[in-house]
Design a protein around this nucleic acid. Sequence first.
DNA 1: ACCTGAACACCGTTCAAGT
DNA 2: ACCTGAACACCGTTCAAGT
Lengths: 243, 243
Amino acid sequence: MTKLTRKQREIIARQELILDVSAKLIAEQGFSNFGMERIAELTEYSKGTIYQHFQCKEEVLMHLCMRGLRIWRDFFDRALTFRGNSRERLLAIHLAHDFYAKLHPVEYESIYTVKSAGVREKISPESHAAQNELMKEVIDRVVIVITEAIENRDLKLPENMAPQDLVYGFWALHYGELMFETFNFPYRNMGIGDLENNVRLVLRTLLDGLPWEPVSTRHDYAASAERIVREIFPEEAASIAMR
Amino acid sequence: MTKLTRKQREIIARQELILDVSAKLIAEQGFSNFGMERIAELTEYSKGTIYQHFQCKEEVLMHLCMRGLRIWRDFFDRALTFRGNSRERLLAIHLAHDFYAKLHPVEYESIYTVKSAGVREKISPESHAAQNELMKEVIDRVVIVITEAIENRDLKLPENMAPQDLVYGFWALHYGELMFETFNFPYRNMGIGDLENNVRLVLRTLLDGLPWEPVSTRHDYAASAERIVREIFPEEAASIAMR
DNA sequence: ACCTGAACACCGTTCAAGT
DNA sequence: ACCTGAACACCGTTCAAGT
């Protein structure tokens, strides 16, 4: 490792500060109030200095997203340290996803924002490639668990279904939840009760239907979830509980 | 019905023109290039005139969304005219959802855009209430099919699961598909094959798992889908095929 | 070498003036 | 009564000037 100069460390620290301030700004005032003017104010640097770090405001968002994807990947790596049957290991991944999305909602939503029309075009191809690579790393962690389950004979996927296809289903169900929550969707008026519980119910039905053994009638996954939280994510659970 | 004056008809026509132009603008140049300046140019009216129709640019989007929700609801009503077993009727709803999302991607995405932070706040409570009511009307069409299936004894929902909760699952899986497609997600790099087929596979697994009778091994739903498209949505299928 | 902030461009919104 | 477009405010981006 090359040792960094004081100046280099300062630049890295400032870059982190810009991203911290951006996340806070978006969380408190929304994407439409996010901008270079505000970042300059809140960091107490001039706009010119912000532009030495990022080519445009969309690149700030992209880098926030990528910092988040590294955190998400690390959450999944921690989930993979859990020892248990293959569906418990998937449950650990599920909970890690939940914790990441809840503790970093801005970064989570930014995954899609940076791909949306009008934003996408302003971001360099290099940044998009780096983001894709990170998303692949995240997905690969889930594929590991599915592949294990197939090797253990806990699971046999339907014909034509690859592990990645199943990951898509998980992701869509999760993302719907976050969207309904952060976007203040009137889901209660629609007749939907507790969203988080609902996603878990739909997922359980999907997994039991495959079937992915042991199915939920033959194993107490609520107890497994408690153990996973206690052993792997105690601090994350505590910080959500006290909000 | 009161007869409208020529002036009133002109105003309605202009309002439709503004929405048409907005949808086209967003489809071709993205949300970030959507704005009052461009709408004025494209409609060949002054900005002041646009502001006589809509209080702000976000209200334009909201009205575009609501016009879309009425189309969606009508697609579902057409799907409900299909005669068949309860899972075929759900398949008709599924296909109607697909056609709506594909033929009106801008309106479909706008459902979420108008609820997002920074946009939501600029829209009047009255407009939000009207949108919620329309969304409820859309969801109610799906609840009808699920309720029928329960009454027929084709389906028994798991404990604690209401019909609306299941609708949520369907919607999330669908929306994920559209998002991956319109946002140019690199899903191929992730190992996912054909998205539309994938969603259908995950949904089928979920329904078979419930189980919702007749399950897919006991009925040829591919044939049902063909019949539904032929009888109910021939024009929509043709217009997608020729793109 | 690094940082600043004035200057410019673009667009949302308003409103006095025109027909 | 209806429509227009100049005027103003706000913010993304640049760059000449300062330290």
